[in-house]
Computed example of a mutant assay.
Amino acid sequence: MTGISPAFPSQSAPQVRGVDRTNVSDDELIDLIYASLLGEASWQKFLDRLSEGLPDGASTLFFHDPHKNAGGISLSTGFSDQALAAYGSHYASVNPMMKGATTRPLGLGVLAEQMYARDRLVKSEYYSDFMRANGLESAVGVTIYRENGCSFLLSTLTSSADLENNRLAADRLTRLAPHLQRAFRHYRAGPFQKAVTEIGGSLFDAIDVGLVIVGSGMQVKTASATGERMLADGAAIGTSPLGQLTLRSSEAMSLLRTMLETGFEGRTVQSRSIGPFKLTFILVQKDRVSTYFEGPTAIVLVEPPHAGSRAVDFEHLARAYNLTAAEMRAMTGIVLGRSIDEIAADAGLSRETIRTQLKNVYAKTGATRQADLVRLATRGILPARQ
């Protein structure tokens, strides 16, 4: 099997005799996976219970991009915020197990020793400065999903280097993998089944602005009526035979691809021109779990030359009114016709948090109700540029 050693190397770390210290069963963990999909439980609870199967278990849902030699932890148990930040900023790039993890078969639970020989692991910076610094000796993991070369993984690190006990934990990950893969498919298909009118498609159709929702790999998920017409027309945007969005500008295409990369940290609202058309890319802001399972999502607004002052200039709005990214997310949601509850659910925040952000938007813009924000966005009524 590619990237997996056929036998265990000799152990150089002291053997801590591990035992399964919990009576958590596969059935309970599987139930937690599906309960999390339905909102009846949390992925945090799933990780907490999974971690209990190994001594000092620390479980993570994380991703790794071998092309950038970078990655990050989306959700975890057993790690401090400082450790999570350190992994994303540095240790993901020096984790010697990632080379094997990005090529191993999907759904196969394995030991750290199968990914990287133990005698070499203990000499690595990752082991010395990250694993040992957090009281850890070994790990088990499984690659759940791959997309555009990026791997999405589940791992439990442990203070025990006991092969027998860790092998049992790796086998459990193999059994859980099909259910986790179904979770990916559910998340990545589900959010786009709603009619585009539910996110304000009719508003943009009324001002002749196309709205297209794009997912990972530039895949077109849905579009408003005007967006569909623009895709078919092909003057500024189109679709490939595989259903991917194409733009009549290599620079704009490159920008949108970059915004749709896992872990993107740049500006979430950006605009580009393609001939007489103006395109605005809005990266949908989500909580970490939704981003992990659903992948990145962007709204593409296409304004034809005759749209004029009726078109929505989100980038200008953000600059003109000094709106933060969180405030811009709340305002964008309102302009797109979403309710406060929907915006809160997508962002993984409370309803009151979104209400507070909207109050800040009202204060900065002088608007007094949601309808004012829609008119502000669609009519281009802005203060003079400084």
Score class of each variant (00 low, 15 high):
R167P: 00
L176Q: 13
A183W: 07
T174D: 08
T174P: 04
D162R: 03
L168I: 08
F184Q: 02
A170T: 06
A177K: 11
T156Q: 10
F152K: 09
Q181K: 13
E164W: 06
L154Q: 10
Y187D: 10
L180T: 02
A169T: 04
Y187V: 07
A161W: 00
Q181T: 12
D171P: 00
A169N: 05
R167Y: 14
Y187I: 06
N165F: 01
S159G: 11
F152E: 05
E164T: 13
Q181P: 02
L154M: 11
R172P: 01
R185H: 11
A183I: 03
T156D: 09
A183P: 11
L163T: 03
S155P: 00
S155Y: 04
H186D: 11
D162E: 03
D171A: 13
L163R: 05
P178D: 10
T156W: 08
S155R: 13
F184M: 06
A169Q: 10
S159W: 04
D162H: 06
R167A: 15
A169S: 09
S160E: 01
L180D: 02
R167N: 13
S155E: 10
A177C: 12
N166W: 05
L157M: 13
S160D: 00
Q181M: 14
N166A: 15
L168H: 03
F152G: 10
Y187F: 15
Q181G: 12
L168C: 04
L163H: 03
L157T: 12
L180Y: 02
Y187Q: 07
A170R: 00
S160K: 01
N165Y: 02
L173F: 02
A177L: 09
N166E: 14
N166G: 08
S160A: 06
F184D: 02
